[in-house]
């Protein structure tokens, strides 16, 4: 799906990277934990998130994330917008939730990105056994 089609489907507003609207984004990943984005994603894919700080753009630069979608009506910080503009990374704002955004994109053919699975124990009280 082209970035401009993504924006239309989720009734979003493109606020940066307007010159990249014809680029195609095929995969997506959703998280509010940048640690997880850094650790788990194995390929470049768009990020659907509620994070509004400039750190998200630095992560995007390091991981070649082609598009950031900020969901649930959250307003990005000025620093995020400035960083995104400087890095030339498109950012779309939408009032839809992360859940709905992902649902719309998935039903329009966007695929999940490949992830790494780390086997470990989250904490000692964890009783989940595989």
């Amino acid at each position: 799906m082209k970035i401009k089609e993504i924006a239309e489907k989720i009734e979003g507003k493109v606020i940066t990277g307007e010159d990249r609207l014809d680029e195609v984004v095929e995969k997506g990943f959703a998280a509010d934990l940048l640690s997880d984005v850094l650790a788990l994603t194995e390929e470049s894919s768009c990020l659907i998130t509620g994070i509004t700080g400039p750190q998200v753009i630095r992560v995007a630069e390091v991981l070649n994330i082609p598009l950031i979608i900020i969901a649930r009506g959250k307003q990005p910080s000025k620093a995020l917008v400035e960083s995104a503009r400087a890095a030339g990374i498109p950012v779309i704002l939408t009032n839809k939730t992360v859940f709905e955004t992902c649902g719309i994109l998935y039903s329009n053919g966007m695929k999940p990105c490949k992830i790494k699975i780390f086997h470990g124990v989250a904490d000692e009280s964890s009783s989940f056994v595989d």
Binding site: L33, G53, Q55
Partner: peptide
Amino acid sequence: DYGFGAGMGFPN
């Protein structure tokens, strides 16, 4: 609050 501190730093 900033999305860090998930305990994935060293493993990653």
